[in-house]
Computed example of a mutant assay.
Amino acid sequence: MSLRPRSGVQVPPLTAQVARASNPRGTTAMWVRDRLDGLWRDEDFDAWYPRDGRPGLSPALLATVSVLQS
Protein backbone atom coordinates (compact mmCIF):
# COMPACT_ATOMS: atom_id res chain seq x y z
CA MET A 1 0.00 0.00 0.00
CA SER A 2 1.12 3.53 -0.64
CA LEU A 3 0.16 6.82 0.94
CA ARG A 4 -1.72 9.44 -1.00
CA PRO A 5 -1.97 12.32 1.52
CA ARG A 6 -5.43 13.80 2.00
CA SER A 7 -4.56 16.38 4.65
CA GLY A 8 -6.26 19.69 4.16
CA VAL A 9 -9.45 18.20 2.70
CA GLN A 10 -12.24 20.54 3.69
CA VAL A 11 -15.97 20.04 4.02
CA PRO A 12 -17.66 21.88 1.13
CA PRO A 13 -19.20 25.17 2.36
CA LEU A 14 -22.74 24.25 1.30
CA THR A 15 -22.48 20.90 3.12
CA ALA A 16 -21.30 22.65 6.29
CA GLN A 17 -24.11 25.21 6.00
CA VAL A 18 -26.77 22.51 5.62
CA ALA A 19 -25.30 20.46 8.49
CA ARG A 20 -25.31 23.48 10.83
CA ALA A 21 -28.83 24.48 9.76
CA SER A 22 -30.23 21.00 10.37
CA ASN A 23 -28.26 20.48 13.61
CA PRO A 24 -27.87 23.88 15.32
CA ARG A 25 -26.42 22.29 18.47
CA GLY A 26 -24.12 20.08 16.41
CA THR A 27 -23.59 16.33 16.46
CA THR A 28 -20.87 14.13 17.89
CA ALA A 29 -19.26 13.83 14.46
CA MET A 30 -19.28 17.61 14.04
CA TRP A 31 -17.74 18.07 17.49
CA VAL A 32 -14.96 15.60 16.72
CA ARG A 33 -14.22 17.21 13.36
CA ASP A 34 -14.20 20.73 14.84
CA ARG A 35 -11.84 19.86 17.68
CA LEU A 36 -9.61 17.07 16.38
CA ASP A 37 -9.23 18.03 12.73
CA GLY A 38 -5.59 18.76 12.06
CA LEU A 39 -4.30 16.97 15.14
CA TRP A 40 -2.62 14.47 12.84
CA ARG A 41 -1.70 14.88 9.19
CA ASP A 42 -1.18 12.09 6.67
CA GLU A 43 2.27 13.53 5.97
CA ASP A 44 3.27 12.71 9.58
CA PHE A 45 3.10 9.02 8.63
CA ASP A 46 4.60 9.04 5.12
CA ALA A 47 7.79 7.24 6.20
CA TRP A 48 5.68 4.24 7.19
CA TYR A 49 4.35 3.68 3.66
CA PRO A 50 6.14 2.57 0.49
CA ARG A 51 6.09 4.89 -2.51
CA ASP A 52 4.27 2.46 -4.82
CA GLY A 53 1.28 0.16 -4.55
CA ARG A 54 -2.40 0.69 -4.15
CA PRO A 55 -3.52 3.57 -1.93
CA GLY A 56 -3.83 2.83 1.77
CA LEU A 57 -6.32 4.24 4.24
CA SER A 58 -5.61 7.68 5.66
CA PRO A 59 -3.27 7.15 8.65
CA ALA A 60 -4.48 10.39 10.24
CA LEU A 61 -8.05 9.09 10.11
CA LEU A 62 -6.95 5.71 11.51
CA ALA A 63 -5.10 7.46 14.38
CA THR A 64 -8.19 9.48 15.23
CA VAL A 65 -10.42 6.41 15.20
CA SER A 66 -7.91 4.51 17.36
CA VAL A 67 -7.92 7.27 19.98
CA LEU A 68 -11.71 7.45 19.99
CA GLN A 69 -11.98 3.67 20.47
CA SER A 70 -9.83 3.65 23.63
Results as ranks from 00 to 15, higher is better:
residue 1 M to T: 15
residue 1 M to C: 13
residue 1 M to L: 13
residue 2 S to M: 13
residue 2 S to R: 15
residue 2 S to L: 11
residue 3 L to G: 07
residue 3 L to N: 09
residue 3 L to I: 03
residue 3 L to S: 07
residue 4 R to C: 11
residue 4 R to D: 13
residue 6 R to G: 02
residue 6 R to Y: 02
residue 7 S to M: 06
residue 7 S to K: 13
residue 7 S to C: 09
residue 8 G to H: 02
residue 8 G to E: 01
residue 8 G to R: 00
residue 9 V to R: 15
residue 10 Q to H: 07
residue 11 V to T: 12
residue 12 P to R: 09
residue 13 P to R: 04
residue 14 L to G: 09
residue 14 L to N: 10
residue 15 T to D: 09
residue 15 T to F: 15
residue 16 A to C: 05
residue 17 Q to H: 12
residue 21 A to Q: 14
residue 21 A to Y: 10
residue 22 S to P: 03
residue 22 S to W: 00
residue 23 N to C: 09
residue 24 P to I: 01
residue 26 G to Q: 02
residue 28 T to R: 10
residue 28 T to M: 06
residue 28 T to F: 12
residue 30 M to H: 05
residue 30 M to R: 10
residue 32 V to P: 02
residue 33 R to S: 15
residue 35 R to H: 15
residue 35 R to D: 04
residue 37 D to W: 04
residue 37 D to R: 11
residue 40 W to Q: 01
residue 41 R to K: 15
residue 41 R to M: 09
residue 42 D to E: 12
residue 43 E to Y: 00
residue 44 D to M: 13
residue 44 D to S: 07
residue 45 F to T: 06
residue 46 D to T: 07
residue 48 W to V: 05
residue 48 W to I: 05
residue 49 Y to C: 04
residue 49 Y to N: 03
residue 50 P to N: 00
residue 51 R to G: 04
residue 51 R to D: 05
residue 54 R to W: 08
residue 54 R to D: 08
residue 54 R to Q: 08
residue 56 G to M: 04
residue 57 L to S: 07
residue 58 S to G: 10
residue 59 P to F: 01
residue 63 A to S: 10
residue 63 A to N: 04
residue 65 V to I: 11
residue 65 V to Q: 09
residue 65 V to A: 11
residue 65 V to E: 05
residue 67 V to F: 11
residue 68 L to H: 12
residue 68 L to E: 08
residue 69 Q to M: 12
residue 70 S to D: 14
